[in-house]
Write a protein that binds this DNA or RNA. Structure first.
Lengths: 367, 367
DNA sequence: ACGATTTATTCAAACGTTTGAATGTTGGTG
DNA sequence: CACCAACATTCAAACGTTTGAATAAATCGT
């Protein structure tokens, strides 16, 4: 007895053990509306027996019959990027109360894996898909297959409302402006800027924000102090890029008192490069990042940066996905939505006022 | 036509569309052994039609019938701990070729979530479970339910071979010894040690290794220089702990030239604390960490640390899990295995030779 | 020309649930 | 006492696959 061939206890096992039919047992254990009509004593007995036998409903059988998988796929471009984690956390928080299981998939920025997972999403009948964006999606409309099945899609980190996909992303323009304004308020005027890789959608608006704020502050950005990050392969390549930048710009002997880096990892690379050249942050040069990820927080000096409300974005994304499913369920149209999140300046120790910086001599010697 | 009620194309749709029976279509598309007997022209036709209709086999129906979910649950104690990521990556790499889908679950160090996920593992009929350990498992044998169903379990980060569970973990004793030996070889003798939280299994052996190496090197560890990290709640609490430590020990005015921290985040906290007190790392004080996580790599100075081969451990864990499933399939016993991974010293810039340290005066002034 | 083998395809049952409809009990009402 | 409702439980079909067994047709050896 006990152990059936499948190795799992089924409704039939429970039914036999307590002398009721499979139907009754199912009705009781799944708390179907009909269970109101089942005698309290019966319910009790069935529940106890199920517990005792260690019954757990088979999600596959259930999903097959109910035609609901209670699953939402979360497609992250790279889990090793600390950027992804708070978003994932937010998504989890949003899915939990609605009782959906997040099917967390890490494409590792590999196109091959992306395709594999896309297939799995279809096969596993995910009811919704949340995509944490990356350049992988640039060229392609890989998601078309999924849309065809009327599965709601939400993308975070990029604006795809143009393609009628609900999108959440930070206001990069505002963020870039915040960063520059902070530096200008500290008195910096010779500001070097590291622009993001071309394939990243954040790069352009961020740069636009920087330019706008510079203009507003009456600061002219010397094009010879503007660098461009190469297309990145993994999250740490931002660090390499920042390091490389520092070496190159110091070699030109061109004077500057602050660096506005594309993201936190880049900023950390810059700090490393400057430090190795004997400069101090922030005394000799201020550095500001973007994103507010863990490494920027625990580094010394802590990196002044532009915080993105990632967790909140993830939470909202999850809620949208659930609402999208609900809407479809009752046959309602669910138009693409958009949320542009407000970035916030977080001041730490990697930036300092130009006038109060104790030692500007060093920088001058270099220049 | 086309769109059936479930909203997904089924075998029946394909069968009707090309005039064969469901069986034939199934045999062809699932590449069953019988498909050899199917005329090449038929195969061709069916495949084309399936492609055209956008058919994707329903994983639920398939799993139900085959009694295989092709799924392995990965239970991580906290995805926001950079420690977890390389392990997860390794697991993914190990599962990919065997064609299992990792069901990635993040308990966020919450007991409640842990229970929820455990239930889901059972319901979703995961064929194996890989646990990335934490103190959550301390008290309990929550996994008993899973073992009861003869689902192979592998745990990484802790030795549970005593409970007949396959385990992979780093040789903490050796790692602790490596760290201390490094410092002693640099000439340090007054070494402060930050021990891990009591609830963490790594803490004790690591400390034992430190003591052994100290003895071998003829160094006496001043008990007044030994601190104990409180039980942590989230990954960043290590950082707070290190910071707190630095403040406290500097207040005692007791002299020391190096700090051996429990892990990298703690080390980063120490660096912050020392720096804020006006000390320089490594000139005034060396700091060594443990784990070799991203923040330690990109900080400046880079943290000298003990590297754990996390990716390799994850890979092996995945392979063990798959082998465990295979063994069960053919009715073979699968005894618990154990792998103690070798840690490696990674020298960066947070440690320096005592004699070459340019400026010991500062430290003396403090002491 | 006939049974035996090979080749090509289909039948039908099963996997473990859920659920609309049906059945069998009560007890109460006209 | 026949009829109806409310209550308690069960039947049986369905969800979309897979697969051992069955069927049908063609090929072959004798």
């Amino acid at each position: 007895m006990g152990q059936r061939k499948s190795g799992h206890v089924t409704l039939l096992d429970v039914a036999r053990a307590c002398g009721y039919s499979v139907s009754t047992v199912s009705i009781v254990l799944s708390e179907a509306p009909l269970s109101q009509n089942v005698a309290a004593s019966t319910r009790e007995r069935i529940r106890k027996m199920a517990q005792q036998l260690g019954y757990h409903p088979d999600a596959y059988a259930r999903s097959l019959r109910r035609r609901r998988s209670q699953t939402i796929a979360v497609l992250a471009y790279d889990l090793s990027d600390p950027f992804c984690i708070p978003i994932v956390r937010g998504i989890q928080a949003g899915l939990q109360p609605a009782n959906y299981l997040p099917l967390l998939m890490d494409t590792q920025t590999q196109r091959r894996l992306f395709d594999t997972y896309l297939k799995m999403i279809l096969e596993r009948r995910a009811e919704g898909v949340i995509v944490i964006a990356s350049w992988i999606f640039e060229e392609t409309d890989l998601l078309a297959d999924i849309e065809k099945n009327h599965v709601p899609i939400v993308i975070v980190g990029r604006d795809l409302t143009g393609r009628k996909i609900s999108s959440l992303f930070v206001d990069n323009e505002a963020g870039g402006a915040l960063a520059l304004r902070h530096l200008s308020e500290l008195g910096h005027r010779k500001i070097a800027v590291i622009r993001g890789p071309e394939e990243l959608f954040d790069s352009e608006p961020r740069w636009a924000g920087v330019r706008r704020a510079a203009e507003e502050a009456g600061i002219e950005i010397d094009p010879r102090l503007v660098f461009q990050l190469p297309n990145l392969t993994d999250p740490t390549s931002g660090f390499e890029g920042g390091l490389e930048f520092a070496k190159q710009i110091l070699a030109t002997l061109r004077p500057f008192t602050a660096v506005l880096a594309f993201d936190d990892l880049t900023a950390l690379g810059v700090v490393r490069g400057l430090t190795e050249a004997g400069l101090r942050v922030p005394e000799d040069c201020s550095v500001v990042g973007f994103d507010d990820v863990l490494p920027a927080i625990v580094a010394t000096p802590g990196i002044t940066t532009i915080h993105q409300p990632l967790r909140e974005m993830g939470l909202l994304a999850a809620q949208w996905a659930v609402q999208g499913i609900d809407a479809r369920e009752i046959g309602k149209r669910n138009p693409a939505r958009m949320h542009k999140a407000l970035p916030e300046l977080v001041v730490r120790k990697s930036t300092a006022s130009l006038v109060s910086a104790k030692n500007r001599r060093r920088n001058k010697e270099q220049a």
